[in-house]
């Protein structure tokens, strides 16, 4: 007979594993990917594949030759970083820029901190922000959605709905005059608007979010508090002056908010641990998003909002502990 094994209790373990979670997230991204492939065509597919492959490649290079440690490129985390990075850049972005973004995501935001689980900032967002600052022109040219095209060059580009409204209002135009310039809300919900590869269809992203909620990959706290606080803040401003501030529903379904709230802010590594911590974090993200969108220089504030809140996560973890069992309760 073989030697008996001795180990500390418990002796049963869940079926869940890191790579199962990662591939679960990847699976949930399929609807959003399909929508973008439909609207942006081959360009979107190329950007996505380039980002995924280059992220895995850089992780491999760094783990194998720089750290000389175990190579874990198939645990799914690099794939997700790649996919998410691709989802938040324009489909028209030159592929070499995508590669640079991947290098920054993996090399700077993830591996320098010690790899999976050790990073403070969401790698994909760091990559995007880096690109946005380095290549502002290319990063602000969004291709117009068409039904499936195989065109890779000479794509017609235009501003995102958020940019249309923001610039219009800045030039003194009224919101009611600007809204007809963007597609209808139902159309926006389906993803028929200019924007980054994967962020266009709020509906497809919601679908993925629901799958992740059922799989218990994410919890409801962050998306709910994030979207809720955006709704409330935008709603207050809208009620003050509907001609200057656009209505909350518009904020909800345009730009990268849905993708950010469901995929970026909920990134396990860079979000708080306790329930109340998550809610505070979500509200912070929502508040910053609206502040940047309405008062900031950029039309879109999701990436900055989440990165700023990422920096506060250690502090939130310290301040918002889970409720301990048997803690001193008021009134006994």
């Amino acid at each position: 007979m073989n030697l008996l094994t001795v180990s500390g209790s418990p002796h049963v373990y869940t079926e869940e594993s890191v790579s199962k979670i990662m591939y679960g997230v990847l699976f949930s991204l399929i609807p959003a990917a399909l929508v973008s492939f439909y609207f942006f065509g081959l360009a979107a597919i190329m950007v996505t594949l380039t980002a995924i492959v280059s992220c895995m490649f850089f992780e491999f290079i760094i783990q194998k030759y720089l750290i000389k440690g175990p190579v874990t490129i198939f645990d799914g985390s690099a794939v997700i970083t790649g996919a998410l990075l691709a989802f938040i850049v324009p489909a028209s972005l030159p592929l070499w820029m995508v590669v640079i973004g991947s290098l920054v995501s993996i090399g700077m935001a993830k591996m320098t901190f010690g790899g999976l689980g050790k990073n403070i900032f969401n790698p994909a967002l760091v990559g995007r922000v880096f690109l946005m600052i380095s290549f502002p022109v290319e990063m602000n040219m969004y291709p117009k959605p068409t039904s499936f095209s195989t065109q890779l060059t000479d794509i017609i580009t235009g501003p995102t709905p958020l940019a249309v409204v923001k610039e219009g209002v800045a030039q003194g135009e009224k919101v009611s005059d600007l809204l007809p310039e963007v597609p209808e809300y139902v159309s926006l919900l389906m993803g028929n608007m200019g924007g980054s590869v994967g962020e266009i269809s709020a509906l497809a992203i919601l679908l993925g979010g629901i799958y992740m909620l059922i799989r218990k990959i994410i919890t409801w706290e962050i998306p709910a508090s994030y979207l809720g606080s955006v709704m409330i803040l935008a709603g207050i401003l809208w009620m003050i002056d509907p001609e200057v501030y656009v209505d909350p529903l518009f904020h909800l379904i345009t730009g990268g908010l849905m993708l950010g709230a469901i995929y970026m802010a909920t990134d396990m590594v860079t979000s708080p641990m306790s329930r109340w911590g998550m809610i505070v974090y979500g509200i912070g993200c929502g508040f910053l998003t609206i502040v940047i969108r309405i008062f900031g220089a950029y039309p879109e504030g999701v990436a900055f909002a989440i990165l700023i809140m990422n920096a506060f996560v250690p502090l939130i973890n310290r301040g918002f502990k889970p409720k301990r069992f048997g803690e001193e309760v008021k009134n006994g």
Binding site: L3, L4, T5, V6, S7, G8
Partner: peptide
């Protein structure tokens, strides 16, 4: 020679509390 196999946190501090050793 080992009589059992140990799995878990590879520290003496824990193993010492758990059992007599392999």
């Amino acid at each position: 020679p080992p009589k059992v196999k140990y799995e878990g946190d590879m520290t003496c501090a824990f193993a010492h509390n758990l059992f007599a050793g392999e």
